[in-house]
Design a protein around this nucleic acid. Sequence first.
DNA 1: ATATGTGCAAAGCATTTGCGGAGAT
DNA 2: ATCTCCGCAAATGCTTTGCACATAT
Lengths: 125, 125
Amino acid sequence: MILTMERTTRQRQAIRDALQQADRPLLASEVLEQAKLAVPSLGIATVYRTLKTLVAEESLQIVALPGENPRFEFAHGHHHHFCCQACKRVFDVHACPGDLSRLVPKGFRIANHELTLYGKCPDCA
Amino acid sequence: MILTMERTTRQRQAIRDALQQADRPLLASEVLEQAKLAVPSLGIATVYRTLKTLVAEESLQIVALPGENPRFEFAHGHHHHFCCQACKRVFDVHACPGDLSRLVPKGFRIANHELTLYGKCPDCA
DNA sequence: ATATGTGCAAAGCATTTGCGGAGAT
DNA sequence: ATCTCCGCAAATGCTTTGCACATAT
């Protein structure tokens, strides 16, 4: 199951670039749309295959919001997300609440956590 | 689009019961499986229709985790979730990190937050 | 009696996969 | 030259919907 991405191709470069140049997590369809500007023949299957591999490598992480398709972004250190309830944009938040082990009942072991904040961004407030 | 759930039926009662008796968010398939015990003829379409209506009414909330199908649970006050990385079950966590406004840059207004903890549950640790 | 609700099967979407051909090494 | 990778189209898997019948009111 572990794909190795042995080769460098125009399609993969275009997909990486699309994600790297975005300042927010992208939908698979948004990645396709953006990467097609560089490689018009690009197919959605290649986008999904590449996203899956990059997620498996932990180069990318998935941002899942209720009722929406998954978004993808390059892992860039531990961080969280702020979802504006007005404009629906998702922003990175680089602060972290820190150790949360006090929150779980005895017997549970926390390895990681994800935090999503909801509210209004400066533009919409 | 707004369905009103005017009538009480065995199927709706079974679906409500399944969710109410569970101590954790359930997949649509789990709701079906459980509710079928009470109403064997129940179909998945009715489950989805009922879940959708209950979510629209804000009686239910969706729990979305990366790479997994949505889960549903009755809204029961502010709480969070723990996802076991081994057995993939999701548990409720009734503690809360509290005020998180210190985490966001100036100009952002936090109305709500969602926290998902990952690790091992007592059974899998 | 009548309009809503249900089950079935088909349709819709997002995502995955098989395959023959294209391209990186 | 070889083996990976790509695009296409078919196949999945989850969710939604159309329709005719069942049922709560």
